[in-house]
Design a protein around this nucleic acid. Sequence first.
DNA 1: ACCTGAACACCGTTCAAGT
DNA 2: ACCTGAACACCGTTCAAGT
Lengths: 185, 185
Amino acid sequence: MARAALRLLDDVGLPDLTMRRLAAALEVQPSALYHHFPNKQTMLAELADRIIAGRPAVVHSGDWAVDVPAQAAALRDSLLAYRDGAEVVESTLSLGLGADAALRRLADAIVQGGFDDETAGRAATALLHFVLGHVSHEQQRLQYDSLGVVAPRVADEHGLDTSADAFAFGVDLFVAGLRAHVSTR
Amino acid sequence: MARAALRLLDDVGLPDLTMRRLAAALEVQPSALYHHFPNKQTMLAELADRIIAGRPAVVHSGDWAVDVPAQAAALRDSLLAYRDGAEVVESTLSLGLGADAALRRLADAIVQGGFDDETAGRAATALLHFVLGHVSHEQQRLQYDSLGVVAPRVADEHGLDTSADAFAFGVDLFVAGLRAHVSTR
DNA sequence: ACCTGAACACCGTTCAAGT
DNA sequence: ACCTGAACACCGTTCAAGT
């Protein structure tokens, strides 16, 4: 059921992932879905949880400055694995319906740096906002490109992945900022 | 017209800001709106531009480490000035329909630090993602609180504004990260 | 140029009734 | 417990026709 929904998400994208289409994919009446979920947002929350759980958590190295970027990259991969994955997780998170595993993994990695819980929590939240915003934007462009609206990413003149570069740069900014924070206390 | 839409946004929120309601507020038929905007997203893009233009840009001090947080704070204020302001800007930006003034202001402030354009652009994008994500979350909670879904923010036991604090912390992380970046090149 | 009236092709959700 | 059938109260958008 959630599997069918994830497949449909990948096929048609979030804007076209309607309860009626999902029902049709399951060869069932729309009203039947409401025996499994109280409403659409709850159903999307289950998708969000599955999207995030996609990749197993990276083994921690003991060095937070290595683990934080690794967790961020793993999260990005999980989000990219499904069409509009970032948006699904974003909306679920903002409604407080789940997807908190993502925040926890980032916070756990940061905590290794010896930061207090409030600092780690705030840093993790800030980093999560960046990751979601970045990947969301990335996926938006993927759609535009595939629709031929714009030239299909000039990006890699030299075989480089500009999106991944910009992502790594943003994550590094956080790590460097945290490092500076710890050295000035 | 855009003014009426902004008032309606403030009254009912983004999910209930429909073309039909807007038409009713203007005492006009829904179809009449399509003589002013080609579609709903374009209309939201105009709102996004007006929301961002809300506060005049802060005068620059010459010190990027002062100006960047100031621009970020001014942007936050602009977004908070309208219900669901962050979400309106987020969606407009991700569709590439406008609201680029926000990114420009952040990038201009960062550039003063002597960073090259690519670095400044990437840092500005990362910071903007954080700002939008943070304020969006902030506004989501404002709604929940006003609906009495949760206790109205335990937050300020000592009269502190936890949201603003967390925001400033996130911005500082960026500034500290950028500073570290410049000192290691 | 700007608007009305009417329609098209959809939505999410509810609910009595069936098995 | 799970589903159907039918309905309710909506959407965004189009288009001929009017002024």
